[in-house]
């Protein structure tokens, strides 16, 4: 009895292998995708959903959460600190883009065969290797009132030193300058690798046609660097939007909150010593997520188009 099902399966299963093959062909991709999808679900989708959910509550992380609907968002609309953060995020986004042309410029400059060029290249790449925390510390000493180099220089020129990190109008630009330092190096490396794959025959042909300087760069070299530009754009936008470490190290959002960005404001409200307004922090996170989503969907749309060869 116990044997018969096996036999019957074998005998009646003349078409079964094909069916099974078809089934397994359908199933296999899902099986291979399953671990990744599982991780994505646990570490990305569910937390996003939870964050949105928490943003409708008033919750200090200890006491029971209390449903308040859209009140957190209503408060955001009336919160000066939120607008300051939003404005700073926009400034970050715009000025961080400078890293791309500057990185390209340095890459073009370094893309030559001179004795010891590798050393120069690695020196230019050096800031990207340093941790953001160290970059932040170096720049806060650079700006420090009293003993900072920058302060001393401005004191020498203008009589009175400029304490960048204590000035509400300058502080964000001061931090962005610190952030640009490693970001330019990053873009430079991307362009250097891109320049390696520029086709020499096209350059040659362009030269025969009399293209030179800017024209050569704009019409011949840059189009070939498009993949590098795309990646540089993506990492720079994401880098600008998630700027947190430099703000935290250099100013803690100060002076009086004027250098906050959304991610730092979210941290302050939800997780810092004086925070623990989980709902409000989550609401800020949702707004930041929505802004990021604009860019992310743009990128996905472009990649999808490229893949389909449009």
């Amino acid at each position: 009895m116990s044997v018969s099902p096996a036999i019957s399966q074998g005998s009646a299963g003349q078409p079964a292998p094909r069916k099974r093959r078809r089934l397994s062909r359908k199933l296999a991709p899902w099986l291979f995708l399953a671990p990744g999808m599982f991780m994505f679900l646990i570490y990305v989708l569910i937390p996003i959903g939870r964050s949105v959910w928490i943003s409708f509550y008033q919750w200090d992380g200890l006491s029971p959460a209390h449903w308040i609907g859209l009140e957190n968002y209503a408060e955001l609309l009336d919160d000066d600190a939120f607008y300051t953060s939003l404005k700073n995020n926009v400034i970050w986004l715009v000025l961080y883009m400078l890293a791309i042309p500057l990185g390209l410029f340095i890459a073009l400059f370094l893309n030559q065969t001179v004795r010891g060029i590798r050393i120069y290249k690695s020196l230019f790449f050096f800031p990207f290797v340093i941790s953001q925390v160290v970059v932040g510390l170096i720049f806060s000493w650079f700006y420090a009132p009293g003993f900072g180099l920058f302060y001393k220089i401005t004191e020498w020129f203008g009589g009175q030193g400029v304490a960048v990190l204590a000035d509400e109008n300058l502080v964000t630009y001061g931090i962005i300058a610190a952030g640009l330092w490693p970001q330019i190096a990053y873009c430079m490396i991307l362009y250097l690798t891109g320049l390696n794959s520029v086709a020499p025959d096209q350059i040659e042909a362009a030269r025969l046609d009399g293209a030179k300087g800017i024209k050569m760069l704009w019409y011949v070299v840059l189009p070939q660097l498009r993949p590098a530009t795309f990646i540089a754009l993506v990492v720079t936008i994401i880098g600008a939007l998630r700027s947190f470490d430099l703000v935290s190290i250099m100013t803690s959002g100060g002076p009086y909150g004027s250098s906050r960005v959304l991610s730092y404001y979210m941290y302050e409200q939800a997780l810092s010593e004086y925070g623990y307004r989980m709902g409000y922090g989550a609401a800020i996170a949702v707004v930041l997520f929505a802004i990021m989503m604009i860019f992310i969907s743009g990128f996905i749309w472009k990649m999808w188009r490229d893949e389909r060869g449009l």
Partner: peptide
């Protein structure tokens, strides 16, 4: 920052910092 609740303390201290500047 121990007498006032956290959110008030934070806002207050930022206000003091701004007032000094």
């Amino acid at each position: 920052d121990r007498d006032a609740p956290a959110a008030m303390a934070k806002a207050g201290m930022e206000g003091f910092q701004e007032f000094m500047a």
